[in-house]
Design a protein around this nucleic acid. Structure first.
Lengths: 135, 135
DNA sequence: TTCATCTGTAATAATAAATATTACAGTAAA
DNA sequence: TTTACTGTAATATTTATTATTACAGATGAA
């Protein structure tokens, strides 16, 4: 797993704190301590998914596209997910082995099950909930 | 996340199928389609945790150290876990930002919560359960 | 209008992590 | 005493992630 979930969560938490006021990618990147281009890239992804709105040009920046109470951590998870939480099998198992032949299918089924469990939990926590934990 | 969970699960599933009979690292590695040294390394880890027993020398090999019904996927998860399921924050956030200052702590708390959820689910599935899904 | 400040995005470089490979000492059975 | 294994370390290779640079396009303000 890469660091995209923490980054996306950080971004959305920041934006939930500023409300209408636009926040720049420079401030966001500075808070996370990552490169501004990388921040904009993740923001771009979140914007395509309808979580963030943006305004170009001078005095441009970013804001949440909907209320923090309407965004759950399941949305964030799905926005950044690029592989199964417990890791993908990278090699093609031996088709001549009874276990090897079937394991990828069984693993996928297991992962679907785990994802449901995780999404249920994540779906019960909103950005507002998370942001409210801060002083 | 790396591929260790699928590998460990594959190994334990294989061993659950052979019972007392010892299985070599070559066969195991061949079924997964990874390097034998890598297989032995993961096996070594699982052995240190009491899940696998081994025998050196000619006609040596591996077997489960306890019944497949006594090993859960939570054991496997904990055996291979090296970082949070949703990814570690790698940069030090800005301590001058109200969010940056606290986010790592809040993230850790969230991750603890998610881990509990995941472990509960994984703890309800044994290697026997998983292996029984195979024809 | 033109300058300054911002987003949007791509191309590339650098770094870090994961995996593969090689090697060989040690152990036990035949 | 040879053969077939495990155990483990060192190293190389590959892949994934993150950082950097660059610049076109948008917008507001002087």
């Amino acid at each position: 797993m890469n660091g995209r979930f923490p980054i996306a969560l950080h971004i959305l938490t920041l934006l939930s704190k500023t409300g209408e006021e636009l926040m720049s990618s420079d401030y966001i990147a500075g808070s996370i301590n990552i490169n501004p281009a990388l921040a904009r890239k993740e923001i771009s992804n979140l914007r395509n998914l309808g979580l963030i709105s943006s305004k170009e040009g001078k005095s441009g920046g970013y804001a949440l596209a909907k209320a923090a109470a309407q965004i759950t951590l399941a949305d964030v998870y799905q926005a950044v997910k690029n592989q199964p939480v417990l890791g993908a099998a990278k090699n093609t198992p031996n088709p001549d082995c009874p276990v090897g032949k079937q394991i990828n299918k069984k693993l996928d089924e297991l992962y679907d099950d785990l994802d449901k469990t995780l999404l249920k939990k994540l779906g019960s926590i909103t950005i507002e909930d998370f942001a409210n934990k801060f002083d």
